[in-house]
Amino acid sequence: MMTLEEAQHQVDCWIKKYGVRYFSELTNMAVLTEEVGELARVMSRKYGDQSFKEGEKDNIEDEIADVLWVLLCIANQTGVNVTEAFARNLEKKTQRDNTRHINNPKLQDHGEE
């Protein structure tokens, strides 16, 4: 298993060894949008109403990894420690939403009527 910190470091090492340099932050934001779109296409075909076109495949794992890769690139470029940021974000959500979703009638099991 790899931690987020290790993944962030692996991306940085790969970029420095094989990638020449990071794309600009704005280019990586555009690449992230592209990768999220590719994930959305697979999701809409696998879980939505669309079907796979000839030649398309269910590569959801690869598309999720592509999104994570670019996010880690952006984190590296902007000096964000993803492990620390995620821990802070989880704590924020826990404090803010600790009863919100539990008390949301829209999330209750609809089969109990």
Rank of each mutant, 00 (worst) to 15 (best):
E91Y: 09
A65G: 06
M2T: 11
F52Q: 12
P105L: 08
N104F: 11
I102Q: 12
E5K: 07
S51Q: 10
Q77D: 03
V20D: 11
A7Y: 04
Y22C: 14
Y47R: 15
G79A: 10
Y47L: 15
D109P: 00
L26S: 02
T94M: 05
E112Y: 12
L68P: 00
I74V: 02
I64A: 07
L72Y: 01
Q8P: 15
M29R: 07
T99W: 15
S51P: 00
T83G: 14
V31P: 06
T78F: 04
S51G: 02
T3I: 11
Y47F: 14
G79M: 12
L4H: 08
I15W: 00
L26V: 08
I102E: 05
A87I: 09
D62K: 03
A40S: 10
N103A: 13
V67W: 01
A7C: 11
I74Y: 13
Q95E: 05
V80F: 15
N103H: 15
T33V: 08
F52S: 13
L39N: 04
G111S: 14
A85R: 04
T83W: 05
T83R: 08
N59P: 01
L107Q: 02
C13F: 00
M29W: 13
Y18M: 15
L71V: 05
N103G: 15
S24T: 13
G55Q: 10
Y22T: 14
E6W: 12
D97K: 14
T3N: 02
M43P: 00
E113S: 07
L32Q: 07
V11Y: 02
M1Q: 08
L4S: 06
H110Y: 08
E61W: 00
D62T: 04
I74K: 06
T99V: 11
T78S: 14
L107C: 01
V67S: 03
Q77Y: 11
Q8E: 09
H101Y: 14
E34G: 05
W14K: 11
R100V: 08
Q50Y: 15
T94A: 05
F52V: 12
G79W: 15
G111P: 01
K16A: 04
F86D: 01
K106C: 00
R100G: 06
K92L: 10
E113W: 04
A85T: 08
V11A: 05
S51E: 04
N104C: 11
Y47A: 14
G37R: 00
A30V: 09
A7I: 06
S44V: 04
L71R: 01
E25V: 07
E56T: 05
M2C: 06
N59M: 05
K106M: 03
A7K: 02
S44C: 11
L72R: 02
M1C: 09
D97Q: 10
Y22H: 13
E113I: 09
V67G: 03
D109R: 05
E63G: 07
M1R: 08
L107H: 04
N76K: 03
N59A: 04
N104M: 10
